[in-house]
Design a protein around this nucleic acid. Structure first.
Lengths: 256, 256
DNA sequence: GAGCTTGCACGTTTATGCACGTTTTCATAC
DNA sequence: GTATGAAAACGTGCATAAACGTGCAAGCTC
């Protein structure tokens, strides 16, 4: 480990923290304080600054990497490939002429890029990058849900956005999946995000959850939707059969 | 260590600092002052100069290696270069803490990419690519105006979008310029676009029109705003003096 | 003398640790 | 399950010290 000498510049420290976040996905405030030989107060201030820039998500005791920040390391490329594969599977659930709610998130962005052209699809989204992924391609209508963008999420949440979502009915809903478990259903890390996801799911016929393996048996801080609200679950082909069975037992159609 | 003797030229010193920066990733101002036997003031001036050239990132206590290499590649179309130049001029009109309406359009996208960070700017836009250009950068709030995207324009227009715009007050407005003439003012090609531009201009303190040469003495199908509604006009440096004079006579402040 | 660099003085900004009161978490008891 | 209490983590305000930018005068080179 590169033991930081006594002369670590404040901003340099933040940079190192971010690097570590991208490498390990999470950091613990107390550990960082010890390593950098500063008080936990300073670390907390660093994490607060990083969170304000949307680079991480502040949690009790430390911080997690923001969902729209690419992690570091060899696993990243393979993750992107996995997301495309999951998105490809999810395409099979989409029918001609349908209206789709597509939430912010990297997997959903991959999905948007792969959506078939000339299928009279209407994409409703709160994420600028999802909108850009389909804008201008033939056979798409795009409706953006406005509001203040949360940099950590990469999309708009908040009451203004929710109100716009409630004016629309969609056939399918693709919520960004922070965490999901077979008993309780969908979880998120943020109150406003929860409300938004509830709104778009409420306004849709069926809900499709696309879950990478790390999200599959996890929970977060805010319970969002019971498992009965999820009609379809898309998972990787090598998912543990026991886990799949638990979801099927809960009435979810699992695709892999 | 190559101990610099007392005869170190200023430029030579900067070069040595840069080398060291490249080698170690960071430099501490106090250390450099001691090594080069000059005051920290001089070191600070050196670092400020290097940072101004984009060669390093100035931080409290020293400097860090610039994260991304400045894009010196001149491969972009001259059109794009012109738009960036116009956008750069327009930057001078923007003040700290202001709220900006930024309409869809390629010039405005260039503007958004160049907006200064850490200036507490709030960007309000109907265009996903403008939103993406500032999303996640430090010191920005981003508010998206939702609605159905027009693929020809690259942004949302229509009544829903207009209604959201009317809930906001901005300091400056940057409407996309389809055509402008010195007597009648701003023109567009579309009814809904006209209504939207009128709304954002109405909701803003001052309006800035950025016009490439081909838009400068032109008209289109729908009259949008009289010339008195345009406070500032940004044009290319080689614009015909007679044309500039006609705009100035109409009370517009012309920047070039 | 013009142009440039340098160091110093001055007021301002930034970073830090500590004190204090609040919130969250977790384990234990009920 | 619910209540409770202690420990940990948190945010905020404050004082201090370091780093900063700016203006200015002295020194240097051409």
């Amino acid at each position: 480990m590169n033991a930081p000498l006594d002369t670590t510049l404040p901003r340099e420290r933040q940079q190192l923290i971010l690097e570590r976040l991208r490498r390990e996905g999470k950091v613990v405030a107390a550990d960082l304080a010890q390593e950098f030989r500063v008080s936990e107060d300073s670390i907390r201030r660093d994490l607060r600054d990083l969170a304000a820039q949307g680079l991480c998500r502040r949690v009790y005791g430390g911080a997690l990497l923001a969902v729209n920040i690419p992690p570091l390391g060899e696993r990243h490329a393979e993750r992107a490939e996995l997301k495309r594969e999951l998105a490809r599977t999810a395409l099979g659930l989409i029918g001609r002429g349908q209206i789709l709610f597509i939430d912010a998130g990297s997997t959903n962005t991959a999905l948007a890029k792969m959506l078939p052209e000339n299928s009279d699809l209407t994409v409703v989204t709160n994420a600028p990058d999802v909108a850009l992924a389909v804008l201008g391609r033939p056979g798409f209508d795009v409706i953006v849900l406005g509001g203040k963008l949360d940099p950590a999420i990469g999309g708009a949440i908040g009451s203004r956005t929710v109100r716009q979502a409630q004016d629309i009915r969609a056939d399918l809903c693709f919520p960004g999946v922070c965490a999901i478990d077979p008993e309780r259903g969908l979880w998120t890390y943020d109150e406003e995000e929860t409300v938004f996801k509830q709104a778009i799911i409420e306004a849709s016929g069926e809900t499709v959850a696309i879950a990478t393996p790390d999200k599959l048996v996890a929970s977060a801080t805010h319970h969002t939707v019971p498992i009965t609200g999820i009609a379809h679950l898309v998972v990787a082909v090598d998912t543990d059969a026991a886990v799949v069975e638990r979801y099927r037992a809960a009435g979810v159609t699992v695709h892999m």
